[in-house]
């Protein structure tokens, strides 16, 4: 049976009727057309579906939409403004941290959350901060450099 949940996504409030077996990732993609959040493995291994939920990064494929009732969610779509990409996104472009781009939204959300909590992370903290996000193209070094360039 569908239940109406209310939540804030990228500063906009939403009221949505969801079935209990729909994940947050599927709700974002299929109910709200926020397809920036990717689905890779759907089992919490790859991190492509990373979003920020109430200030912490989570695999949105392992959160039921109904569990996000009342939560504040940030997705990749919330980062850019009318002026363009966010500085972190620009850094990914400039440093060549993007190839196929499938992992990028998840990695950028992890990196954003890391930098929000700790504006000046060490090398180890950067690597730890994206350790749940897999990339099959770049070999991670350019991703690391992009995040490193955004340290304050």
């Amino acid at each position: 049976m569908k239940k109406i949940i209310s939540l804030t996504i990228n500063d906009q409030s939403h009221e949505i009727a969801v079935e209990p077996n729909i994940t947050l990732a599927d709700m974002l993609r299929y109910e709200l057309a926020l397809t920036g959040t990717k689905k890779g493995c759907d089992t919490g291994d790859c991190g492509a579906c990373t979003v920020i939920m109430d200030g912490d990064v989570v695999n949105s494929c392992l959160v039921l939409a109904i569990q996000a009732n009342g939560s504040v969610i940030e997705t990749i779509e919330g980062l850019s403004t009318d002026e363009g990409l966010s500085p972190l996104q620009e850094a990914f472009v400039e440093k060549g941290a993007i190839q196929c781009g499938f992992c990028s939204p998840g990695i950028i959300m992890s990196a954003k959350n890391l930098l929000d909590k700790n504006p000046n992370p060490t090398e180890d903290q950067i690597r730890e901060g994206v350790s749940g996000n897999l990339c099959r193209c770049t070999g991670y070094q350019k991703i690391f450099e992009a995040i490193e360039s955004q340290r304050s």
């Binding site: 919490g44 990064v57 989570v58 994206v130 350790s131 749940g132």
Partner: peptide, 9 residues
Amino acid sequence: LGNHLIRNR
């Protein structure tokens, strides 16, 4: 345990 995403849940 797991990774930084899993540890939040």
